[in-house]
């Protein structure tokens, strides 16, 4: 027993079974949340780049049907704005082929289809964000539970002693505080990442909606011509 040797690993290995289980869960949560963070960084950067390149192509003044044909060739890779545009333009062409020439009805249909696509895209961007939120908000409580449990046990064992010195109390408390330390280690990156990612997703969502409005305005102008 070397209480003087301060080491997170030693403390974790000497802790009781409940505390050890909590520590294991917290470590897994930390691993998964960091995986989600890396994944989101990649996805959001990809989405931003895709949106910029598509907007550039869209506003360069080319033919819309040509653009549509170009996008249709690699359907799988179209994400973000490109997916919304593809769905909207496909719906527009289909509605135009049917006999009705009611422009307003066509636009409404196109908008509805695009909103579905938008919602799907936003959903794709928001994957794992609730998990990060959960880890960030609950893991401190889980760690606190482990700490309380460990301190309870330490005080229970302390009941055997004739006189309770600081040297007898301190190791038990130190052991149990490891749980809080691990929990904070998992929670802090998760909270920061959640806040940042949700703001980025909101901005992208705004951008998509703007594009949707502008595209439907363009289609309405074409239909009235």
């Amino acid at each position: 027993m070397e209480h003087s040797e301060f080491s997170l690993l030693n403390l974790a290995l000497e802790a009781g079974p409940v505390v050890q289980a909590i520590l294991l869960g917290l470590v897994i949560a930390s691993v998964v949340s960091w995986a989600a963070i890396f994944d989101r960084i990649r996805i959001l950067r990809q989405a931003k780049q895709a949106a910029e390149s598509f907007e550039q192509r869209f506003w360069s003044g080319g033919d819309l049907s040509a653009l549509y044909r170009q996008l249709g060739q690699n359907e799988e890779q179209s994400i973000g704005l490109a997916a919304i545009f593809r769905v909207g333009f496909k719906e527009y062409v289909r509605l135009r082929k049917t006999a009705q020439h009611d422009t307003m009805a066509t636009i409404v249909g196109v908008e509805r289809a695009m909103r579905v696509a938008l919602s799907r895209e936003i959903d794709r961007l928001e994957t794992h964000l609730p998990y990060l939120a959960t880890v960030g908000s609950t893991s401190p409580y889980v760690g606190l539970f482990g700490t309380v449990w460990g301190i309870m046990q330490a005080f229970h064992a302390l009941g055997n002693m004739q006189q309770a010195t600081l040297a007898l109390v301190a190791p038990g408390i130190s052991e149990s505080l490891v749980a809080t330390a691990i929990a904070l280690f998992a929670a802090i990156p998760a909270v920061i990442a959640y806040n940042r990612f949700s703001s980025e997703v909101a901005r992208l969502s705004n951008r998509y909606e703007e594009f949707m409005e502008e595209f439907s305005t363009l289609l309405q102008r074409q239909g009235n011509d």
């Binding site: 691993v31 963070i37 990649r42 996805i43």
Partner: peptide, 11 residues
């Protein structure tokens, strides 16, 4: 697969 790669980075 991309998610797995992220998991690997995290580990």
């Amino acid at each position: 697969r991309d998610y797995m790669r992220s998991l690997g980075w995290s580990l």
